[in-house]
Simulated scan of single mutants.
Amino acid sequence: MSELHDRPDSPCIGVCSTLFDDVCKGCGRTAYEVSNWVFFTEQEKAAVWERIIREGTGMRFCDSSSTTSQT
């Protein structure tokens, strides 16, 4: 089985900001990538996954323990 099939079908986490931002704050994909995801080939999807993992800027990659408040 390929690595791509070990991942969710889409990087989306349901926190979309592509109406307001060039890059979604939730998943890290561009508006173009979000709107065309279903038309991408497996290779194109893999390339996007590799880039967003490498950049790690989307909320998808935030460490939840660092975002919780400490009292």
Rank of each mutant, 00 (worst) to 15 (best):
D63S: 07
W49Q: 01
E55S: 09
C16R: 03
P8K: 14
L19Q: 11
V15I: 13
A47T: 12
F20P: 00
S69Q: 12
D6R: 15
E50C: 06
V34P: 00
R51E: 11
T67L: 14
E55Y: 08
G58E: 00
G56T: 05
S69R: 08
F20T: 15
T57R: 07
G58T: 01
G56S: 09
S17P: 01
R54G: 06
S35E: 09
S10A: 12
N36M: 12
G26A: 04
M59W: 04
I53T: 06
S2N: 15
D22V: 04
T67P: 02
T41S: 15
R29G: 03
P8Y: 11
V34H: 05
T30Q: 04
V15H: 10
V48A: 04
W49M: 04
G58Y: 00
Q70K: 11
V38W: 10
V23F: 05
A46C: 06
D9F: 09
T67W: 05
T18M: 05
R7A: 11
E3R: 12
F39M: 14
G14C: 07
D63N: 13
S10Q: 08
L19R: 07
R51N: 06
C16H: 01
S66K: 13
S17R: 03
F39N: 15
R7Q: 15
R7W: 14
M1A: 14
V23A: 03
G56C: 04
V38E: 14
E44T: 09
R54S: 12
R51C: 08
L4R: 15
R29Y: 04
V23K: 05
D9C: 10
V15R: 08
A47D: 13
D6C: 14
E55V: 07
T41L: 09
T41E: 10
W37E: 01
S66A: 13
W49I: 08
W37V: 05
D9K: 10
T71M: 10
R54V: 08
V48Q: 04
A31H: 03
V34R: 02
F40K: 13
K25N: 06
E3I: 15
T57F: 03
C24P: 00
V34D: 01
S10C: 14
R60S: 06
A46I: 07
H5R: 15
M1I: 15
G14A: 11
